[in-house]
Nucleic acid binder design. Sequence first.
DNA 1: TAGTGTTTGTGCTCACATTCACAAATCCAA
DNA 2: TTGGATTTGTGAATGTGAGCACAAACACTA
Lengths: 204, 204
Amino acid sequence: MKYRKIPDETIRRMPMYLRALSLVEQEGQQTISSRQLAERLHLKPPQIRKDLSYFGAFGTRGIGYPVVSTAQQIRTILRLDVPQKAALIGAGQLGTAIAAYPGFSVFGFDIAAVFDNDPAKIGKHIGRRVIEHIDAVDSLEDRAIRLAILAIPSEAAQACADRLVRAGVKGILNLAPCYLVVPKRVKVVSIDMAMALGVLPYYM
Amino acid sequence: MKYRKIPDETIRRMPMYLRALSLVEQEGQQTISSRQLAERLHLKPPQIRKDLSYFGAFGTRGIGYPVVSTAQQIRTILRLDVPQKAALIGAGQLGTAIAAYPGFSVFGFDIAAVFDNDPAKIGKHIGRRVIEHIDAVDSLEDRAIRLAILAIPSEAAQACADRLVRAGVKGILNLAPCYLVVPKRVKVVSIDMAMALGVLPYYM
DNA sequence: TAGTGTTTGTGCTCACATTCACAAATCCAA
DNA sequence: TTGGATTTGTGAATGTGAGCACAAACACTA
């Protein structure tokens, strides 16, 4: 395929493929066809083939995709081949839940630091990590932490994002229900639970 | 505008508009133009005008949209004009965080029941609510609860979704990282935090 | 080595969503 | 009452992504 811009939607699906392939690997299956993978993920086979083909030809015609090496390729594409450290901002209820969430490890994420602005929480433990004062985010650059998960109220989110950007953070997962203004070099992905819930009654 | 199918993307944005309008209302502003609204939400003005126009002509040319009545119209469209009761399934860390999350109230959601399968948790309180045994979900229909938030591990999610559907649930917000198979009449919206985080390193 | 069955990789078409551009509608001031 | 300044509502154009259909490639058997 001659060079084409890789659709954002394709990138968004790559972690899906990686997780599915990890599961298939655990089950001991050596290869998987686009049809089988599509069944698991409730997608259409051509979608998966096209997505993967943007990054090269991983599959073998007549056989399918080799599970282990394709998973590894996707890890390389997504830069998940090296363990990624992330900072968690906000040690409230949501922050605590995220710190304990087991789902991040499949992708090699490690929540390496936790910050909060509540003096009463500083020094306490959250899992195996010590809660640090929010002012300590300036040290993130030295600690090679480039990712942050924002689990704080909307009112504080933008100011905090500004600090994170100054501290060299390159990617932010924002859980506050607000839009964050950041330089173009920084990527923000937002999750808004209330908005997601908000559309449900419409469809009932 | 003659009848046209309303795009899913338009529906997805309606709660955004509603939240923004609620804020503008609090600030005491009477009307708002598509340009002002677009600035707040980082969208383009024609997008907002087209989205709103699918449901009728709410605005006044030369002036803009009346804040209060447009918000009320959106509530009616989304069926958020009546308070919506939701059941929370899973009283773990994530479930506890969701039960305490203040963001749902803007849309009139009320978490009216909490369920778990851990006998040790049954009867304990989570906020003002008592944790009930998961078997009690069958009573949801009688209690007029048609929405559910799934905050349980993936392994249990499908079986639980099946029970919810049997109990008359019409909409599910799924926080487990898996696809749920449900009848077409039931709407599922999934949030996968690990997947959202998974794309960030790619853009760094 | 030839034939059969399977599955990938991809050009093309279609559907959907976003954005533009402009007429129609309204306000306000003189 | 008229003219200028705004802003909506929407047909048309543009952009983006999904899915089809088929040729190319490979495995396996005889």
